[in-house]
Simulated scan of single mutants.
Amino acid sequence: MAEVERTAAGSALTKLILDLFRLNNRMLTSGDRLVANLGLTSARWQVLGTIEASERPQPVAWLARDMGANRQNVQRIVNDLEKEGLVAFAANPHHRRAQLVVLTEKGRITCEMAMRLQAPWASGLADGLEVTEIERTHRVMRALLHKLEGSEEAREEA
């Protein structure tokens, strides 16, 4: 197979993407271990955190959009969380079938406990890194996310 030509930036980005895949897998595994005693996984924790961070209750489709995740996967996780009493469904005045997802008191407490575990974990990971480096990396990631979301929206409109 012939070598595909990339710009220098494209080659650097490709290396970054491959490492981001590895980092994502390691983060999920580490997150799973961190919150296992709370009965959570990284995926459940992410859904709970998205619900908690929302300004108001949202339907599953909106939560999935905010997470950049597949609606069906988020629905499955929300259903599991509801069975465990961490979230509940509420009537949506704007859409009869798309119920709103709300944290229960148990869900709120579980989120708080997870964040108490996360704070020293994140600080430990950040140890030895400069805040400006972390912020610069975050800006690059947000720029890439913005470009990808823009290209997805353009495809959907076509």
Results as ranks from 00 to 15, higher is better:
residue 62 W to M: 13
residue 105 E to W: 10
residue 73 N to E: 11
residue 56 R to Q: 13
residue 124 G to R: 09
residue 107 G to H: 06
residue 68 G to T: 08
residue 56 R to E: 14
residue 54 S to D: 07
residue 115 M to V: 00
residue 88 A to P: 00
residue 99 Q to Y: 03
residue 73 N to S: 11
residue 100 L to Y: 05
residue 126 A to C: 04
residue 41 T to E: 00
residue 113 M to L: 14
residue 80 D to F: 03
residue 53 A to Y: 02
residue 89 F to R: 15
residue 66 D to A: 12
residue 129 L to W: 13
residue 101 V to C: 11
residue 78 V to Y: 04
residue 117 L to Y: 08
residue 98 A to W: 04
residue 89 F to M: 08
residue 40 L to G: 04
residue 120 P to H: 03
residue 119 A to S: 12
residue 123 S to E: 14
residue 91 A to L: 12
residue 47 V to L: 03
residue 124 G to Y: 03
residue 79 N to T: 14
residue 49 G to D: 04
residue 57 P to C: 08
residue 69 A to S: 15
residue 41 T to C: 00
residue 89 F to I: 01
residue 114 A to W: 04
residue 98 A to Y: 08
residue 92 N to C: 03
residue 107 G to M: 06
residue 125 L to S: 03
residue 104 T to K: 02
residue 62 W to G: 04
residue 122 A to H: 07
residue 130 E to V: 10
residue 104 T to L: 02
residue 56 R to V: 08
residue 83 K to T: 14
residue 69 A to R: 15
residue 100 L to N: 05
residue 95 H to C: 12
residue 68 G to Q: 10
residue 91 A to V: 14
residue 100 L to H: 08
residue 42 S to F: 13
residue 98 A to I: 01
residue 39 G to P: 09
residue 122 A to T: 11
residue 75 Q to R: 11
residue 107 G to Y: 06
residue 115 M to E: 05
residue 59 P to D: 10
residue 88 A to R: 14
residue 79 N to A: 14
residue 77 I to C: 11
residue 90 A to G: 03
residue 59 P to N: 12
residue 75 Q to I: 00
residue 70 N to M: 06
residue 85 G to L: 04
residue 111 C to Y: 11
residue 101 V to P: 13
residue 121 W to M: 02
residue 95 H to S: 15
residue 50 T to M: 15
residue 50 T to K: 15
residue 89 F to V: 00
residue 78 V to F: 05
residue 47 V to E: 01
residue 70 N to F: 10
residue 121 W to L: 00
residue 59 P to H: 09
residue 116 R to D: 14
residue 47 V to C: 01
residue 39 G to M: 06
residue 105 E to C: 07
residue 109 I to Y: 05
residue 116 R to S: 10
residue 88 A to T: 11
residue 37 N to M: 10
residue 62 W to C: 06
residue 125 L to A: 08
residue 115 M to W: 04
residue 58 Q to S: 07
residue 73 N to C: 02
residue 69 A to Q: 13
residue 51 I to E: 07
residue 129 L to S: 11
residue 43 A to L: 12
residue 52 E to M: 09
residue 46 Q to T: 13
residue 58 Q to I: 00
residue 46 Q to R: 14
residue 129 L to T: 06
residue 129 L to Q: 12
residue 120 P to W: 02
residue 84 E to L: 10
residue 112 E to G: 15
residue 91 A to H: 12
residue 61 A to Y: 11
residue 99 Q to H: 13
residue 122 A to W: 08
residue 41 T to S: 13
residue 111 C to A: 06
residue 82 E to P: 02
residue 106 K to C: 00
residue 118 Q to Y: 14
residue 100 L to K: 07
residue 127 D to F: 00
residue 65 R to S: 05
residue 64 A to E: 11
residue 54 S to N: 06
residue 96 R to Q: 15
residue 47 V to G: 01
residue 57 P to G: 11
residue 93 P to R: 01
residue 89 F to D: 00
residue 126 A to P: 01
